[in-house]
């Protein structure tokens, strides 16, 4: 059932090309704007921070629609045949896949246009992976909550920022270590924190989403 739903999300997304294209274009346009304003960043801390800020806003943009795009009729249909946990998990997994692709694309464009400063690439990619998954789990749950307020974008930002900021701080720290080419062993505690936050978010959403769904 879970796989079927994820499959449906992907099909739906591929059918509405404008949504997927919009997200990717948003990333490319932001990176290009940064390129035009910064030209070339040689300072690793700035390079790293700008990258994650682009990622932050791109992911809020990408995920904010996850619960709005399902029509009321379709939600009622899901409600009658599916367990709510399946719905939230499928959305999270789908958004995670989307975000991983988006972050890789963003990283590629960012490296080409702005600069490539990463010295420990495997660790940076790992932080990119954990970061995308974390963004998508946090934002999926928050978008479910924000959708109840007739889903405006500012509500999504207000509700998610307190959760995203500490996550982002940890993420920036670990990817900064990767950029500077610091040994992996220094990064492990931060990776552990990122994984911990991910587990907590998924667990909480799994427990809380059924209550959110009973309309």
């Amino acid at each position: 059932m879970l796989l079927y739903l994820i499959n449906k999300e992907i099909k739906l997304e591929l059918r509405n090309k404008y949504a997927l294209g919009g997200i990717f274009l948003y990333v490319i346009a932001t990176v290009y704007t940064s390129y035009l304003s910064f030209k070339n960043i040689i300072h690793p801390a700035t390079w790293n921070a700008l990258f994650w800020i682009i990622m932050l806003f791109a992911s809020i943009n990408a995920i904010s629609k996850s619960f709005v795009q399902d029509s009321n009729g379709r939600q009622l249909y899901y409600y009658t045949i599916l367990k709510p946990q399946t719905v939230i998990l499928s959305k999270m997994i789908y958004n995670a896949i989307l975000m991983v692709f988006m972050s890789l694309l963003c990283f590629a464009f960012y490296s080409v246009f702005i600069n490539y400063l990463v010295q420990n690439l495997p660790m940076f990619l790992l932080s990119l992976l954990l970061g995308s998954i974390g963004f998508s789990t946090i934002l999926t749950m928050v978008s479910a909550i924000a959708a109840k307020t007739n889903g405006n974008f500012s509500m999504m930002a207000i509700l998610s920022f307190p959760m995203l900021i500490p996550f982002l701080i940890t993420l920036i720290k670990v990817s900064k270590l990767a950029v500077d080419g610091i040994d992996n062993s220094v990064c492990y505690p931060y990776l552990l924190v990122l994984i911990l936050i991910n587990i907590v978010v998924v667990g909480l959403s799994y427990i809380l989403f059924p209550y959110l769904w009973q309309d």
Binding site: M141, I145, P162, V200, L212, Q214
Partner: peptide, 13 residues
């Protein structure tokens, strides 16, 4: 209901 859910989510985080 929605604010109780956010409350639990926020407090745990």
């Amino acid at each position: 209901r929605v604010s109780a859910i956010y409350n639990i989510f926020a407090f745990t985080m």
